[in-house]
């Protein structure tokens, strides 16, 4: 919204513009109602749960109370706060790795693959025609102690039969690997779009001016593609902060993430109030992340307007 008003020369503000241009402004009303009903209203409800103004428990009085917030937020020891910190580290790690891995992929598609690029793009996206859950379970088959990798090692005589690599599954490695695998193609897309639409003449100019390939990449290609890179980074960072399926299926007892705690509070325990505190906190963090990176996220990635 801030972008919209600052981009407009009018000083009438959002509502002023809506009402002064009834022909167009009112058209946004259904969308605004929809967003209010399915996004804002539930968020408000969750917020009310978090301060104990609503509860799912019977016979418990609903009074405004910050007890759950005080218990969760530092200072003071709280296991869920620790879980949040660990989850953020994993999330950042996965996001960085996914971007680093996706960049060459996007580069290949944009500059090398030429005619075959759309076929390749389709191939990269092909696994996404099946559900996320099935893909995670497929990883279980690969990583399990008698799974594809360990069986191969046994057959090749590299490890003794029955002695599988223990950290392959039910570990942070497995959780990070599955998340990384899941996001790489999505991360590659925004980077690809930026690279694909880059003005090639700039690259020629750089070479004409005597820059080598590496120098061209680091001085021209990479800076121009940064909006795509940051968009990609945010693409993976934000959904991964709330991830709970991968840790649930391939994580061990120690590898649950913040999303698992939230999920458990709503489904496994009858304490929605505490779960709401964790959920609101996560939403707040995501909003902060969006604001932080928002300025890099040009609405039109092709222009590569943002400079870094």
């Amino acid at each position: 919204m801030a972008v919209a008003s600052s981009a407009s020369p009018q000083r009438a503000g959002l509502f002023g513009r809506l009402f002064s241009a009834p022909g167009r402004g009112w058209l946004t009303l259904p969308v605004i109602c929809f967003l209010l009903a399915v996004f804002v209203f539930p968020l408000v409800l969750i917020g009310l749960y978090s301060v104990n103004l609503l509860t799912n428990l019977f016979g418990v009085p609903t009074n405004f109370s910050l007890v759950n917030w005080e218990s969760f937020l530092p200072p003071g020891d709280n296991v869920f706060w620790d879980r949040f910190k660990i989850s953020m580290v994993i999330t950042l790690l996965v996001s960085v790795m996914a971007v680093v891995a996706a960049y060459p992929l996007a580069y290949f598609l944009a500059f090398v693959a030429r005619k075959r690029r759309y076929t390749l793009l389709l191939l990269i996206l092909a696994p996404f025609f099946t559900s996320y859950l099935l893909r995670v379970i497929a990883w279980k088959v690969i990583l399990a102690n008698n799974g594809v990798i360990n069986s191969a090692l046994w057959e090749l005589g590299i490890r003794e039969q029955g002695d599988g690599i223990q950290w392959l599954i039910y570990s942070w490695f497995a959780v990070a690997l599955v998340l990384f695998y899941s996001w790489v193609p999505f991360v590659a897309l925004p980077i690809y779009v930026v690279l694909e639409n880059m003005d090639r003449r700039l690259l020629e100019a750089a070479q004409d001016l005597g820059a080598g390939r590496l120098r061209t990449f680091f001085r021209v290609t990479l800076p121009l593609s940064l909006p795509g890179v940051i968009a990609a980074f945010v693409f993976v960072l934000i959904p991964t902060t709330g991830e709970f399926i991968a840790p649930l299926l391939v994580g061990g007892p120690d590898n649950s993430m913040f999303g698992n705690s939230i999920q458990a509070f709503f489904s496994e325990t009858p304490n929605w109030n505490y779960g709401a505190v964790l959920a609101v906190w996560l939403i707040a963090i995501v909003i902060v992340l969006v604001l932080l990176f928002g300025r890099f996220l040009s609405t039109d990635l092709r222009q590569g307007r943002a400079t870094a």
């Binding site: 428990l57 296991v79 869920f80 879980r83 007892p253 649950s256 705690s261 458990a264 325990t269 009858p270």
Partner: peptide, 15 residues
């Protein structure tokens, strides 16, 4: 006190 126990279990899971 199932609520207390359920919360305690979540603390075990997150510990």
């Amino acid at each position: 006190n199932e609520d207390e126990v359920a919360l305690a279990w979540q603390e075990v899971s997150a510990a």
